[in-house]
Write a protein that binds this DNA or RNA. Structure first.
Lengths: 132, 132
DNA sequence: GTAATTGCAAAGCATTTGCAGTAAG
DNA sequence: CTTACTGCAAATGCTTTGCAATTAC
């Protein structure tokens, strides 16, 4: 991956800056709403393209969580997540995952194991209040 | 299967039977292709509706994995999965997850933690062969 | 100057839903 | 008989893409 390919456009800068400001893990659409306050004419497609770019260059990460929409994390640091089973909200969770060295694990049909993560399911405070 | 309002239609029966035959974790569309060999006139919507029903009554489970499509598991037994980062293929993985009692875990903004799982990322044998 | 990037709109997928007809119990 | 369920098709929701205009460098 080349280091000097990308251009730091105003849109890319604001997308990154706003994502870094918050520790929720917004969907593209949620971030679009935030970014639009500063750049009213930005398009949702541009938000998606910049998120994709920033993931590719390792500035941010895409959460590998279940749910109908992709969620993004302004950091590239390794940590776990709790997901609300009712509303999909995601929060950070400090938890050390102890696994055998991944390269030594053998699974039939797989050549190599490259990563592992724990995901927690919970009920967030807001959803817990609602009668179901 | 429980004795309650649900009706065991031919479509529901075949969807369940075919899903139980295989240990891959098909998407709704993949299962649709299989079921169609026995019931050529079944609709994809019916496959979706029956999968949803079977998950609701606890006969099967929906994988809480990342990826663009939902995947289903013919069993309700607890085990972990490896997902191919290139093609999305999922395989079973026997791995005991050791975590503190979930009810005792405290996360800010969450009332309770109800479940946890490990997901492994790998490269499946088929994808490993291809030049990238 | 020129190629990466943008806004817009349309296309692509996976999934859900409304409806009138069908079939399970 | 009753009403859950079906096939069909249209709708929905999220994400990607084609294109001409714009902009970073």
């Amino acid at each position: 991956m080349k280091a000097h390919e990308g251009r730091m456009t105003r849109q890319r800068f604001v997308v990154l800056e706003e994502l870094r400001k918050i520790d929720t893990h917004p969907t593209a659409d949620e971030l679009y709403a935030i970014v639009r306050k500063r750049l009213p004419r930005i398009s949702l497609g541009t938000v998606y393209r910049n998120l994709e770019y920033l993931v590719a260059v390792g500035e941010i990460s895409r959460l590998e969580s279940a749910g109908s929409s992709m969620r993004f994390d302004g950091t590239a640091s390794k940590h776990q997540h709790v997901r609300c089973v009712r509303c999909g909200r995601i929060a950070d969770f400090v938890y050390s995952l102890v696994v055998p060295p991944l390269r030594e694990m053998k699974v039939e049909g797989f050549d190599e194991i490259v990563d592992a993560r724990v995901e927690f399911d919970g009920v967030c405070s807001q959803c817990a209040l609602q009668t179901v």
